[in-house]
Write a protein that binds this DNA or RNA. Sequence first.
DNA 1: CGATTCCTTGAAACTTGTCAAGTTCCGTGG
DNA 2: CCACGGAACTTGACAAGTTTCAAGGAATCG
Lengths: 249, 249
Amino acid sequence: MPIRAVSPLTSPALDLQPGLRKAAENEALVGLPGEVASVVAKAAGGKRRVRLGEFLYRSGTPFHSLYVVRSGMFKSIVLDAEGREQVTGFQMVGEVLGLDGIEKEICQSNAVALEDSEVWEIPFSRLEALCRQDPGMQRMFHRLMSREIQRDYLMMLLLGSMSAEERLAAFLVNLSQRLTVRGYSATRFILRMSRREIGSFLGLTLETVSRVFSRLQREGLIRAELKAVELVDIERLHAMVGGSALQAA
Amino acid sequence: MPIRAVSPLTSPALDLQPGLRKAAENEALVGLPGEVASVVAKAAGGKRRVRLGEFLYRSGTPFHSLYVVRSGMFKSIVLDAEGREQVTGFQMVGEVLGLDGIEKEICQSNAVALEDSEVWEIPFSRLEALCRQDPGMQRMFHRLMSREIQRDYLMMLLLGSMSAEERLAAFLVNLSQRLTVRGYSATRFILRMSRREIGSFLGLTLETVSRVFSRLQREGLIRAELKAVELVDIERLHAMVGGSALQAA
DNA sequence: CGATTCCTTGAAACTTGTCAAGTTCCGTGG
DNA sequence: CCACGGAACTTGACAAGTTTCAAGGAATCG
């Protein structure tokens, strides 16, 4: 029997976080976690559609805006001269893209849509102006960047000292948490990214990712059928990663 | 013949960056790279001494301030429930500590002095107030956080897809660049951190770090005598890491 | 539908980790 | 000033985990 996984794409939000009930009155902000909602409400410029495989922005191009995912999912990747490639994150609804471009006013990474997606564009100069006027907005934006830095530190911990099995468990638990916050199933979901992309994110080869999926399944922790995943024993998965499940970033 | 390495601690700054000549007139700001200098000049609260091995702050304690290194060197580390430990960075003069505490107003990592050191304390509420008044200050602070995020992405690239040899080369080239900016020798310096700490930073064991030091030395790329390092063939070291030498963060 | 991409699995090779021993270095106290 | 003890470092041998190479099958897209 196939896993009838609920797609984050097509499923309605089951429940909203307390802080979101207000924001939810605005059609578009449903499912936005915490603070981001009000940043978007006040600072957003236009919307933009990005189709599967298209770049939202490319490394080396001028930076003008941050982007908040409105629907769909993105990956951001950094490349080096050797052609090495590292996925630095997967962004889902309500998460922010482009923070690394602020410093030089040039995009430092690439953002690619993993499915047909939509973003709000947040012109950065507008955001900065708002932050000067509104201490609440300022605080939110600073929290946002700080949160990204925390997430990065935990990624370093993962990449620096966890086994392949632990990394994948952390990845799945993290996805589960982020989906839960957005009102989706904590235990069944569709991966939007390939094994290769997961591998790049976790510092593993695609073959290792595939093998670990199989192993976790044999051990009864998950069920996986290609992109469809079910977390069978979320307790034990959580235990594997020792609390630091990358947080629901 | 022992390497007469120049200690970053005791050596005078050889040259100042153009943008610093003004700031340098202020005794304490000599050697501060770029933007940080003026942030410090305007926003700094008190100074604080931290002896070798002492914590500047600990994970879990309340967050009130950022810190700019005034002299000496720090490591910042994150821990997880399993007791795994990851060094997320080594901070030298002019670099900033504490950015990850902003979001929750609780320190999320630990900062430990690798030698007797001094910091400026930057009360965060004061910094935010200044940022609201002064767009230049605001821009600087945002650049600072963005820069940290870029650095983190490059660390992920390093941890996710570079060999032990490449990681150590990147580490040494990065140190060299940061020392150069501060007016120290690009080719001879004293490591303030142990092999174990380097290993934790690079996602390697101390034994591997030690072996790679030996190997790079056999290959004529460096000379290493415990903490004293000389970069003999900085060209080739740089080539090994493919441009993305972590940048002079 | 055909071609392509993605996924899984096996076997072998390789890099790095683990365990262990020996040496050097350094701070402390005699 | 020297001796002692502990920490840091180096090196070897071996084990283990992961990558690499290769092949076959399944799914997806035009």
